[in-house]
C-alpha cells in the first residue's frame, strides 16, 4: 500500500511506533529471575524503549519484559541492584 503524503506531513494514525516491532533487532535478551526481583522498578525507569512492564508489589508481581519491542541493550541488566536480570544469547 502506498503511503499518502498529508498536508504538512501530519501523521494521523499515531502512535505508529506500536507497529514497528523492534524486538527483531536483538542479539541478546534480558531474562528476569522472578525470585531475585525485589520489585524496585529501577529497570523500568532506565529502559530507553519503554519495554518493561513495571512490577506490582501488592500483587507480588515481578517486572516483565516486552519482547516485541525490547532491543536487548542490556541497560536493565546493568542497572538491576539485585542481579535479577541476565542477558542471554537469542537462540534463533
Amino acid at each position: 500500500m502506498v503511503t499518502k503524503i498529508t498536508k504538512g506531513c501530519v501523521i494521523y494514525n499515531s502512535p505508529t511506533s506500536l507497529g514497528n516491532k523492534t524486538g527483531g533487532w536483538r542479539t541478546m535478551k534480558p531474562v528476569v529471575d522472578e525470585e531475585k526481583c525485589k520489585k524496585c522498578n529501577i529497570c523500568w525507569q532506565f529502559c530507553p524503549d519503554s519495554s518493561i512492564e513495571p512490577a506490582d508489589r501488592k500483587a507480588n508481581k515481578a517486572i516483565k519484559i516486552n519482547y516485541d519491542y525490547c532491543k536487548g541493550c542490556g541497560i536493565c541488566a546493568a542497572e538491576c541492584p539485585f542481579k535479577a536480570i541476565t542477558m542471554v544469547m537469542e537462540e534463533k
Binding site: T3, T6, C9, V10, Y12, S14, P15
Partner: peptide, 24 residues
Amino acid sequence: HCYLDPERPTTVGAFAPPEYYMET
C-alpha cells in the same frame, strides 16, 4: 490539518526518508 487534541493524537514534524521526501 494540524491541531492539538489529546483525544486524537497526531505526529507533527516527523522525519521523511528519501523514499518520501521528494513527494513532500
